[in-house]
Amino acid sequence: MVKLIRPQQHLSARGFAWTEGFQPFTVRLIGVATVPTVLMAGATIVHVRRREIARRGSLPVLGVLTAVLALVRFVWCTF
């Protein structure tokens, strides 16, 4: 979420060297994509603790979509 708040130059100086290869808009877009991923991970933890996996058929589907989003994001950011 830091990618949403901090300017690109600040991120680069703080160890996010990969931000130098992207437009500021793209860095912010990656920050926006991080928010639903974090929320989905938190929701998954809550459902697993409550043992609601069997009652939630959409949970595995959303989990796979989240994993694909994270994979695409990390693969895309390595270029």
Rank of each mutant, 00 (worst) to 15 (best):
P60I: 01
T34D: 14
V61N: 00
V75Y: 03
F79R: 00
I5Y: 12
P7L: 04
Q9C: 08
W76E: 04
T78I: 00
V38T: 12
T26D: 07
Q8F: 06
C77R: 07
A67N: 01
L71R: 00
G15V: 05
E20G: 10
V32C: 04
L4M: 09
L29R: 10
R28C: 05
F79D: 02
S58I: 09
I45Q: 05
G63D: 01
V35I: 10
R73I: 07
F22H: 09
I5T: 15
E20D: 09
V35W: 00
G15T: 07
F74Q: 08
R6W: 15
Q8M: 08
A43I: 15
A43E: 04
V35Y: 00
L29W: 09
V46P: 04
E52M: 11
W18G: 02
R14G: 08
L59P: 03
V38M: 11
G57S: 04
G63F: 07
G57Y: 01
V27F: 01
R50I: 04
W76C: 02
T26C: 06
R49T: 13
C77V: 11
H47D: 13
T44M: 12
P24T: 13
V35L: 01
L62Y: 10
L4F: 02
L29S: 10
E20T: 11
S58F: 13
F16P: 01
W18I: 06
F16S: 09
T66A: 10
F79G: 07
V72Q: 05
V46R: 09
T19C: 12
A17S: 09
G42I: 11
Q8D: 15
E20C: 08
R55S: 13
L4Q: 06
I30F: 12
R51Q: 10
F16N: 08
V32N: 02
F22N: 04
W76Q: 03
W76A: 08
V68M: 02
I53Q: 04
V2L: 12
P7G: 03
R50T: 06
G21R: 08
I5W: 12
G63P: 02
R49S: 15
C77T: 11
A43D: 05
W76S: 04
A54W: 01
R73Y: 11
E52A: 13
R50Y: 07
P7F: 11
I5P: 02
T78N: 02
L39V: 15
L59C: 05
R51H: 09
H10C: 07
F79A: 03
M40C: 14
A33M: 14
A70G: 10
F25W: 15
I5E: 02
R50V: 04
A41G: 14
F79T: 05
F74M: 11
I53S: 01
